[in-house]
């Protein structure tokens, strides 16, 4: 790239402000919609991870389990499935009393009927419903264990929702990406077609394709850069507004934002190059 190409790109940008502004507005609109989708997908992923991370398995112990047997069981479960927290009979009763809140109701119960339990926070690879079911089955067969609960139905539904969201996000993502490619390509193509006459004149004067194309490609990249930064600004404002109403709404990670700008610029470069090659073929016949 030459200083002349940059100067030419800036000149074209200045002299054709109308076309450049139209291109930037159209690109900003398309990129904002695509970015909105990305932000929704990211927030859905974050929310599902948050819910998924709270999945745990509750292992109820038999009343006759000794302390050493319990410690041994804790060690085995920690090694096999994840972190384990012991909740004794008294602690369980305290939790229960706190949840019920009505002392008269609690007085009606003679003695603490709640078993001691172990709360197991499963490792990430064991969080899917089938893995949890298998883990629960294995734990249930251990002699110290009275019962195992992990909310099988809830876990299955959460998994279904996650899968559905992933598939939907993939399909919508492909559709949005295709729409974005078309919008960027056609927007840049229109700006190039609007400059058909100077392109034709330069071709008649003997300019090489590279000489003609470089300034226009640089201009398209400028426009995409401005549009992508503007759309990120809009998305940030939107996220801030949403976060003030709904807690936990987050902006795109910075790596995603950088990739977003990079993708917009790459698309503009590609769109401008393709559009220019078509125009050059047409005018230079």
């Amino acid at each position: 790239m030459h200083g002349f190409d940059l100067r030419e790109a800036l000149r074209s940008f200045r002299h054709h402000r109308g076309i450049a502004t139209t291109a930037i507005v159209a690109l900003t609109a398309a990129l904002t919609l695509a970015g909105l989708f990305l932000m929704l997908a990211h927030n859905a992923t974050v929310a599902l991870q948050f819910v998924g991370d709270r999945r745990e398995m509750v292992v109820y112990l038999r009343d006759d389990v000794t302390d050493s047997q319990r410690d041994d069981l804790v060690n085995r479960l920690t090694g096999l499935f994840g972190s384990v927290t012991y909740v004794g009979k008294n602690a369980a009763w305290k939790d229960f009393a706190q949840q019920v809140g009505d002392p008269q109701l609690l007085e009606a119960v003679d003695q603490n009927p709640l078993p001691a339990s172990l709360r197991v926070r499963l490792r990430p690879e064991l969080l899917a419903a089938p893995a949890m079911a298998l883990a629960a089955k294995q734990v249930g067969e251990m002699p110290e264990v009275e019962d195992v609960r992990y909310g099988a139905e809830w876990v299955r539904r959460l998994d279904d929702i996650t899968r559905g969201l992933e598939r939907g996000a993939l399909a919508a993502g492909i559709a949005v990406a295709l729409a974005l490619i078309l919008v960027v390509y056609n927007t840049i193509r229109l700006t190039v077609l609007a400059r058909r006459q100077p392109i034709e004149i330069m071709s008649r004067l003997g300019a090489t394709d590279g000489f003609i194309a470089r300034p226009y490609v640089i201009e398209a990249v400028f426009e995409a850069l401005i549009a992508s930064v503007l759309s990120l600004g809009l998305l940030y404002a939107l996220q801030q507004a949403a976060a003030s109403q709904i807690s936990g709404v987050v902006f795109l990670p910075w790596s995603w934002a950088a990739a977003f700008v990079g993708a917009a610029v790459a698309l503009a470069w590609l769109g401008a190059s393709l559009a220019l090659s078509r125009v050059l073929r047409a005018v230079g016949a």
């Binding site: 054709h16 100077p198 004149i201 008649r204 004067l205 003997g206 090489t208």
Partner: peptide, 24 residues
């Protein structure tokens, strides 16, 4: 080729009836 064609045109000076100057 496109490159050869550009080279050929650079050896010519062309004047058109409608001038074909760049307006900007």
């Amino acid at each position: 080729t496109r490159g050869q064609r550009a080279l050929l045109r650079r050896t010519l000076g062309i004047i058109y009836e409608d001038f074909r100057l760049l307006g900007d």
